[in-house]
């Protein structure tokens, strides 16, 4: 009798599970090096990272991509390619103190205009452009032309309606290019 009641309860709850499934689609998973398109693998191999490079396939509504993630000199590198192996951009995580002072000032001015109070949680420099310029940048060299710099940041920002976490992209002059609120993954299974 008790089992019957339990099964009836579970059956009644099943439609809820279906309804709960209508969420934004985004997925990232590890792939083996052999599954990476040759041009992407060759580019990353040519950078001679000492540490192991981890490859990921990312699926989202904007399109799919392949990403190489690796650390060098305590900085995280994320090198993004399209699914055929064409280089898209390179993101290198920096500490705030590594950012030139004049850039820090521009970034701070922009953030001051957006928030009552803010705290930068993470900052990475995103380079996009031609392959040879990006190759030099990944080697810590400064090419004269052929690339664009963006600052991609995770910022805890307080607006009059509350405190939230944002992903903010600024150009090299500190002008705002994109601002998105970060929606946290559901953590009910960790809280209860």
């Amino acid at each position: 009798m008790q089992h019957k009641t339990l099964f009836l309860c579970l059956a009644a709850l099943l439609p809820l599970a279906t309804a709960a499934g209508q969420t934004k689609y985004e997925r990232e998973y590890r792939i083996k090096t052999q599954a990476v398109p040759a041009p992407a693998r060759q580019f990353v191999d040519s950078l001679h990272f000492q540490k192991k490079v981890k490859w990921y396939f990312e699926e989202n509504l904007r399109g799919n991509s392949i990403e190489a993630k690796v650390c060098r000199d305590k900085k995280r590198f994320s090198i993004e390619f399209d699914t055929s192996g064409v280089l898209q951009d390179i993101e290198i995580q920096h500490r705030w103190t590594d950012i030139p002072e004049h850039t820090q000032r521009r970034i701070t001015t922009t953030l001051d205009s957006l928030f009552v109070r803010h705290d930068i949680r993470k900052i990475q420099i995103q380079y996009s452009g031609n392959r040879s310029a990006l190759f030099k940048l990944a080697q810590n060299q400064q090419p004269a032309t052929g690339y664009t710099t963006r600052y991609e940041m995770v910022v805890k920002g307080k607006k009059p309606d509350g405190l939230r976490l944002y992903e903010i992209t600024l150009d090299e002059n500190g002008a705002l290019r994109a601002l998105e609120e970060i929606v946290f993954k559901n953590s009910d299974n960790l809280e209860y």
Partner: peptide, 12 residues
Amino acid sequence: ELPLNGEAADPG
């Protein structure tokens, strides 16, 4: 919570 694939426990 440790994902067994990728950097976060994504759907699927």
